[in-house]
């Protein structure tokens, strides 16, 4: 298996090998992986990669899937142009 050829996060182009390397460096939670590698921070907001990241953490550290903490979810669920937000704020004034 060539983990370099397995894409986990399509939005930020993070491979399974990237995850393994980070695990070895001591990053063990979804939140840490997200901060260091932007996994789950693209247009899909972890809707595609999230479950795979959870699964890979569980497998690598031999944890039950239920115990693997998911990442924090914050607004927005997708990219929004700053211009759109600015225009909306001006309308409200």
């Amino acid at each position: 298996m060539d983990a370099k050829q397995i894409i986990i996060c399509r939005c930020s182009d993070v491979t399974l090998q990237d995850l393994y390397d980070l695990f070895e460096e001591g990053y063990t939670t979804f939140e840490e992986l997200k901060r260091i590698k932007r996994v789950g921070m693209g247009p899909c907001q972890a809707n595609t990669c999230g479950k795979m990241v959870q699964w890979e953490i569980a497998k690598y550290f031999n944890q039950p899937l239920e115990d693997v903490e998911f990442h924090n979810m914050r607004p927005f669920t997708m990219g929004v142009k700053l211009k759109s937000i600015k225009e909306s704020a001006e309308d409200e004034e």
């Binding site: 397995i6 479950k51 795979m52 890979e56």
Partner: peptide, 12 residues
Amino acid sequence: ASEKALPFENND
């Protein structure tokens, strides 16, 4: 819901 995906080589 959203659909789940599988990690395998060349899945992109």
